[in-house]
Design a protein around this nucleic acid. Sequence first.
DNA 1: TTGTAAGCGTTATCAA
DNA 2: TTGATAACGCTTACAA
Lengths: 331, 331
Amino acid sequence: MGYTIKDIAKKVGVSPSTVSRVINGTATISEETSQKIRAVMEELNYHPNSMARSFATGLTRTIALVIDADNEKSFANSFFNRSVFAIEKQAQEAGFNLLIANGNKNVGISASQLVYEKKVDGLIIPPNCMNRELEQLLKANDFPCILLGKPKKKKASFFWVDIDNRGGSRQAVEHLKKRGYKKPVLFIENEATVFDSERALGYAESVEEEQQVVIHMAEHRDDLSATLKKLLKNKMDAAICSNNEMAYLIGKEIKRLGYSVPQEIGMVTFDNYPLAEYMEPPLSVVDVDTYSLGIEATKRLIDMIQKKEIKEDYGIIPTSLIERTSTRKEG
Amino acid sequence: MGYTIKDIAKKVGVSPSTVSRVINGTATISEETSQKIRAVMEELNYHPNSMARSFATGLTRTIALVIDADNEKSFANSFFNRSVFAIEKQAQEAGFNLLIANGNKNVGISASQLVYEKKVDGLIIPPNCMNRELEQLLKANDFPCILLGKPKKKKASFFWVDIDNRGGSRQAVEHLKKRGYKKPVLFIENEATVFDSERALGYAESVEEEQQVVIHMAEHRDDLSATLKKLLKNKMDAAICSNNEMAYLIGKEIKRLGYSVPQEIGMVTFDNYPLAEYMEPPLSVVDVDTYSLGIEATKRLIDMIQKKEIKEDYGIIPTSLIERTSTRKEG
DNA sequence: TTGTAAGCGTTATCAA
DNA sequence: TTGATAACGCTTACAA
């Protein structure tokens, strides 16, 4: 069954509270007793019972990451994966554990329940997993929470962190210009997601107005070939793709239509994983640092939990451009 | 602060224990009082405090998945990612939460600590995160634990689940034979990992002895070109690769040496992610179902926690072959 | 079918 | 610097 704080106390000849104080450093204890207590704890290999502790303090020292399970494929692979390592690591360093919770309201234990039941001290949650009920619950209890991704306007009022998608687009455009491409076209899935609309914004800011062409893949998957054929005639000499799979499809079609990458057409994609490096030719990318994103989200959340002041209500992680063959016009 | 079980009891006019019994269904309560209690719980939007509950019962209703953080890249991307969704889902369905824990002993809260501190009821853990201390601790406390992957002999004595790597190799060989390839060569990283040695075993079982060639990439990354050149002369007309990245390197080199895939050389790789589908040509794969693996591991663990009998001390998830262009010799 | 009361291991308050 | 003691919210014998 393991020892309790009382066992330690008895063996040393002090009261349980003194042992507790040594464990938590919550009062000054004479070096002597402190030493003795530590020795006995070591000797008996004592570990405090986290359940009792949580119960007594009202704190779990656990944070939850809500995952968008409906979105398992797209979200999981490119975004979640690397973030979760970072979040776990950062949480550990602050002495917190990480709980994974399902964002799907209809299945099992919901995020709301974690809050109601006080199973965690704070929440990291993608904006699209936030719902009205949860929002009110969090606000009513002043419950620490940070959004993993910039919310649409209507969900403002929570702190958030995100990749600099807007800046990333600009970076892609500037890079292509520098390499001698004049007519970059932006391919996004659609503007419904915040990250795609931010990317469209960044693109619009850095490409002259009369040259701007934004293709919504959601509407053009079926007639991609025809769409590209038309564009390639005179409106496009480079593609900026919002994800790897898109880049694969577009690149394949460009080549099939008889154009060469990078000599005639340049290509840049968002995301360095999973395909970019292995395409033919290897793709230049706007790398999004989801690891830093996770770190930043976790730091802020834990600051909130510990009532530290937070400088800003959002954090933006810069992107970085990795140049590969797909934009080497010369050579 | 929220309501407690006493508030409910008082309002209904019963004792706290009666409320508890209704919540847990742990005794027969008259339909009438039961109804009243439920109504009041609903009305006050009461949720039991999980900390108090855990403390009282000694159970957390939480399981931990230990992740191999040192191995972040390789392990994370191909294996962990999809398993974690499955594990979370299956845990939810049984009313358990999922905690992510770091396998690195030197960082933060270790798996052992979770056990010592009773923060979870059971552990899912990759064999290489198991260490002597943890092993003894688990055994001494009869602590529920399941290995995510077949252990080396020395770590036997725990239940485990794994992909059928051995069968997967056989499947690859049979498929290649059926498609008219006669001399498949197996490429693995090395035999230090259980999955690679199992794959070597399956290969050895299904290829005639005098034709067997197993290349350890660990020793041949630098002279891959020369190695392949020699093999391609007369010892090899197909490659079975133990992972996608390997398949990429090998495929590229085969083509560079002037051989055509699949007309002259067939290719099969383990793992359907992340590259197989997007290679040129798209690769036939031995698909490993890490989703099922996660489900199976979780089911077994929860059975152990709930002291249900477990049929077997291990579970093996079959692989399946997905045929793509890389093995279509004809056509 | 229900109530009473003890107990889970720790922290926190108040006194000394 | 330390010790008693109550309190945290729930479950669970044991009694009725």
